[in-house]
Amino acid sequence: MKSARLVALAALALSVAAGAAHALDFKSVGANPAVLYDAPSAKGRKVFVAPRGMPVEVVLTYGDWTKVRDAAGDLSWVESKMLTAKRSLIVSANSAKVRASAEDGAALAFTADKGVLLDRLDPAASGWVKVRHRDGQAGFVKASEVWGE
């Protein structure tokens, strides 16, 4: 009886951990470019200067520092104050089709090449994300064609 409870408790703990592993937290580099370091300290080695608006996945926060993963999968540290909750996305497809509405057959609003930053206007719903290009054009892109959602 006791071992059955332990097995059930372990299974519950694993399912909770698995669910939490899927919850990704994204932020973007704020109004100014941010230096990314190999350690949570300004004395660490500078590995990259992230442009403003660049989306990053938050891995963990440690004091005033945040460990982040970029679109290439590289891990580094950034001062937390350099990040903003305002979300940007980066086009991961060779050419993303941004549509007037969230449908494959909808009119084409514009296309965006790989690496282009888009402002996220609304979170993904039914596989589509509402976005805006810096020139003001807006529309819906498939969530699978962008990174940072």
Score class of each variant (00 low, 15 high):
Asn32Ala: 14
Ser3His: 08
Gly30Phe: 09
Asp113Pro: 02
Leu36Asp: 00
Ala17Pro: 01
Leu24Glu: 15
Leu117Asn: 05
Val47Pro: 00
Thr111Asp: 06
Asn94Met: 13
Lys142Asn: 10
Val49Thr: 15
Val141Arg: 01
Ala107Gln: 13
Pro51His: 12
Lys81Thr: 02
Trp77Glu: 00
Ala42Phe: 04
Ala42Trp: 08
Asp122Cys: 01
Met54Lys: 01
Arg52Asn: 05
Ala31Met: 09
Ala107Thr: 11
Leu89Cys: 08
Ser3Pro: 04
Pro123Phe: 09
Ala102Pro: 10
Leu121Gly: 08
Asp104Pro: 02
Leu118Pro: 02
Gly115Val: 07
Val98Thr: 07
Ser76His: 04
Val116Ile: 13
Val68Glu: 04
Gly139Pro: 08
Ala102Leu: 05
Gly73Phe: 02
Asp64Thr: 05
Ala39Glu: 13
Leu121His: 03
Ala109Glu: 11
Ser28Trp: 09
Asn32Pro: 00
Arg87Ala: 08
Leu75Asn: 14
Lys86Val: 14
Lys86Met: 06
Ala72Pro: 03
Phe140Ala: 05
Phe140Leu: 08
Ser92Val: 07
Gly127Met: 07
Pro40Tyr: 03
Trp147Tyr: 14
Ala34Thr: 04
Lys142Ser: 14
Arg120Thr: 04
Val29Tyr: 01
Ala18Lys: 03
Val98Gly: 03
Ser126Phe: 09
Arg99Asn: 13
Phe140Arg: 01
Leu118Phe: 02
Ala93Glu: 13
Glu149Asp: 14
Pro55Cys: 12
Lys27Ala: 15
Val58Met: 12
Gly148Ser: 08
Ile90Glu: 09
Ala39Phe: 08
Arg99Gln: 15
Phe110His: 01
Ala34Gln: 08
Gly53Asp: 06
Tyr62Thr: 10
Leu89Glu: 06
Gly73Gln: 07
Asp64Arg: 11
Trp65Gly: 00
Arg87Ile: 02
Asp74Gln: 13
Val98Cys: 02
Leu75Cys: 09
Ala34Leu: 11
Ser80Asp: 11
Pro40Trp: 02
Ala143Trp: 01
Phe110Val: 07
Ala20Asn: 11
Arg5Ile: 11
Lys2Gly: 02
Thr66Lys: 02
Ala71His: 12
Thr66Arg: 01
Val68Asn: 05
Lys86Ile: 01
Ala143Pro: 05
Ile90Thr: 15
Ala39Asp: 10
Met54Leu: 15
Glu145Cys: 08
Lys97Asn: 13
Asp38Cys: 08
Leu121Ile: 15
Asp122Glu: 15
Pro51Arg: 15
Leu9Glu: 10
Gly19Glu: 03
Thr66Met: 03
Ala11Thr: 08
Ile90Pro: 01
Val78Ile: 15
Ala100Gly: 05
Lys43Val: 07
Lys27Cys: 08
Ala124Val: 15
Ala11Ser: 12
Ala124Asp: 15
Ala100Tyr: 06
His22Val: 14
Ala13Pro: 02
Arg87Glu: 11
Val56Gly: 09
Asp113Lys: 13
Phe48Met: 13
Phe26Arg: 03
Ile90Gly: 00
Ser80Cys: 02
His22Arg: 10
Pro51Glu: 14
Glu103Ala: 15
Ala50Asp: 04
Met54Pro: 00
Gly63His: 05
Asp135Arg: 07
Lys2Leu: 11
Asp25Arg: 10
Ser28Val: 07
Pro33His: 06
Val141Glu: 04
Ser95Ala: 14
Ser80Ile: 05
Ala107His: 10
Thr111Ile: 11
Gln137Thr: 12
Arg52Tyr: 02
Ser126Ile: 01
Lys46Phe: 01
Gly53Val: 03
Leu118Ile: 05
Gly115Trp: 06
Thr84Val: 10
